[in-house]
């Protein structure tokens, strides 16, 4: 690892000041991607701004029909939360499928979303459940958040504070994990929300996206059989040693069917 200055600010304002004063400063959330990246010397921040001492960024709150999760809340807390389990079980299930137990104990929802790894699970939850990302300056709709490979709508030094999930009528997440890393080769979140059916796909493309063909088919008939015969275009999908674009396209439909079946129970 290259050398850096370490900061652990006690407030958002203090964190913002450190970020503003240092061009090459980077935020440290749970560190489950950041630290391995730095160990490989693929990142060389001048300063690390550790948000773990900012208590307001952590916790799960129910507010009417929405659940708000603080950016620094670890995956294990979301997976184990009785509130999330009862209000949005699909979200608790998804959080419990991320990485391994130790990653879930340190990794955070804010860190995962800011990083926007193409194979991360949380982007599918945020997009599929039509969540809102609350930063220190604004609120960003999930549909506007994911831009490209490791690229989001976040501006420089913008800090995610919380993510607000509206309670869906029903939802489920199905994932085909890479057996070694547990990252999603393909993961699909299917949700019936008050605004209609949403199908969000992770692992398949440069960043999470909605599969409108699947949404249209499910809007007519919310059943796994409604997706029989539907094919997904492999054109823009990822091609790597784990899976070809064609295989990923196939998995999108299979995972969507599994999610629909699970959501229908």
């Amino acid at each position: 690892m290259y050398e850096f200055q370490y900061h652990r600010p006690a407030s958002i304002d203090e964190a913002k000041k450190i970020l503003a004063d240092n061009d090459e400063a980077i935020i440290l959330a749970g560190g489950m991607t950041m630290l391995p990246t730095m160990k490989l010397r693929l990142a060389r921040p001048s300063d690390l701004v550790d948000l773990s001492a900012i208590d307001s960024l952590r916790g799960i709150r129910k507010d009417g029909k929405t659940i708000e999760i603080g950016a620094m809340t670890p995956h294990a807390d979301v997976a184990g939360s009785s509130v999330v389990q009862s209000e949005i079980p699909a979200l608790a299930d998804l959080a419990g499928m991320i990485g391994d137990a130790q990653v879930r104990n340190r990794g955070t929802i804010g860190g995962s979303l800011s990083n926007s790894d193409p194979a991360a699970d949380y982007p599918a939850a945020v997009l599929g459940l039509n969540a809102v990302i609350k930063t220190d300056t604004r609120e960003i709709a999930a549909d506007d958040f994911f831009k490209d490979l490791f690229e989001t709508a976040l501006g420089p030094n913008e800090i995610i504070q919380a993510v607000r999930f509206p309670k869906p009528k029903r939802a489920a997440y199905a994932k085909f994990p890479n057996p070694a890393s547990r990252y999603a080769v393909v993961g699909v979140m299917i949700a019936e929300t008050t605004d209609g059916i949403r199908a969000a796909v992770t692992g398949a493309g440069p960043c999470a996206f909605r599969a409108t063909e699947i949404e249209a088919a499910l809007a007519k008939d919310f059943s796994a059989t409604a997706l029989d015969g539907l094919t997904f275009d492999a054109g823009d999908l990822n091609d790597d040693l784990h899976a070809s674009p064609e295989y990923r396209a196939h998995l999108v439909i299979v995972m969507a069917k599994r999610a629909v079946a699970a959501a229908s129970v």
Binding site: R8, L35, L48, Q102, R106
Partner: peptide, 11 residues
């Protein structure tokens, strides 16, 4: 439980 190779001592 955490992986101590993926945590800084300062943390």
């Amino acid at each position: 439980s955490v992986k101590s190779c993926t945590m800084l001592a300062v943390q």
